[in-house]
Structure formats: structure tokens, C-alpha cells
């Protein structure tokens, strides 16, 4: 299979990746070491592979890697470090919203995108923003609560 080179920004770092011409972005990113991106369906229906593309959450399994030349991508690895967690990462641990953790990166990326554009979302807006991130473990309750909690923290509310 023919390969091509793409130049892109991943988590604010300039990167050059050599990808197969028919490769999915999720596979290209995982091969480049971004293992936090998960895959659960390869058809855009589970959301485990959600990344930000130019600021918007998208299913990286549905994006040809070849199209990603020039993209700015944010993955879960770009949110925070274990010793410096993003408020969303911190909150979801506080509310108990992580069970197996497989869908967590995608969910956090969708939530991150929401809070960037809407710092004070109501519950319906949180649900809508994460409607593409399926979870079988938690029943969503504590994950949604985590987004509310993180939003509060980020706004500086008590």
C-alpha cells in the first residue's frame, strides 16, 4: 500500500507522519504513539476514537489519515498530565465516572470541546455534546456529573 507524508499539529506539537494512503486517522495516530485514542467500532458509532480536529470533536475512525495534512489535532494526551490533570480529568475521577476507562478519553474530548464553547452548559447540553460517546459501564450518571463539576471549577464557582 502506498504511503504518504502528512504534516500536522498534534497537541500543539508539529509532527510529520508517514501514513498508508487508505489508513484511518485513528490507526495512524495510535501507530504514532497516541494510544489514548481507543477504537470500539470503526464506523463512527461508539465515539471511543473521538479527537478534536481543528477544535471540533470528530470520530477519528471516519477520517482518512491522508486528509489530515494541516490539521490541528487534540487527543486525550493533550489534555493534562497525571500530575497536572485537567479539571475534567480530575472531576471524572472525583465523581466516580470512570469504570473500565475505555470510553473515557473520547468522552473527555467531547466534553472538553463543549466547555471551550460553552463554559456553563446545562445538563441537556452536556448530554447532547456527549451523545456520540457510548458507555456501557457507568450509565452516564457520574460522567455527566463530572462535566458539570469541571465546568464549575473552570468558571471558578464555589
Amino acid at each position: 500500500m502506498k504511503t504518504i507524508e502528512i504534516k500536522l499539529k498534534i497537541n500543539n506539537e508539529d509532527k510529520i507522519l508517514r501514513v498508508k494512503i487508505n489508513e484511518r486517522l485513528v490507526d495512524a495516530l495510535r501507530a504514532a504513539g497516541y494510544k489514548g485514542i481507543k477504537k470500539g467500532c470503526y464506523e463512527g458509532s461508539c465515539g471511543a476514537c473521538t479527537v478534536l480536529v481543528n477544535g471540533r470533536p470528530m470520530n477519528s475512525c471516519m477520517i482518512p489519515a491522508a486528509s489530515a495534512d494541516g490539521f490541528e489535532i487534540t487527543t486525550i494526551e493533550g489534555l493534562g498530565e497525571s500530575d497536572n490533570l485537567h479539571p475534567l480529568q480530575e472531576s471524572i475521577l472525583e465523581t466516580g465516572g470512570v469504570q473500565c476507562g475505555y470510553c473515557t478519553p473520547g468522552f473527555l474530548i467531547s466534553s472538553y470541546a463543549l466547555l471551550k464553547s460553552n463554559p456553563d452548559p446545562n445538563m441537556d447540553e452536556i448530554k447532547r455534546a456527549t451523545d456520540g460517546n457510548l458507555c456501557r459501564c457507568t450509565g452516564y450518571v457520574k460522567k455527566l456529573e463530572a462535566v458539570e463539576r469541571a465546568a464549575k471549577k473552570m468558571r471558578g464557582d464555589k
Binding site: 477504537k39 498530565e81 490533570l85 473527555l108
Partner: peptide, 19 residues
């Protein structure tokens, strides 16, 4: 309700799963 011991790894997307 302490936090999950492996939580930080999970929420930062560390390689932990089989694949």
C-alpha cells in the same frame, strides 16, 4: 469514595489495554 487507584493513567490515556 476514594478515587480509582489507576484513575490518572486512565484519564490521561496511558497505554494500559491489550491492544
Amino acid at each position: 469514595s476514594i478515587k480509582k487507584v489507576e484513575g490518572p493513567g486512565l484519564v490521561t490515556g496511558k497505554p494500559m489495554f491489550t491492544d
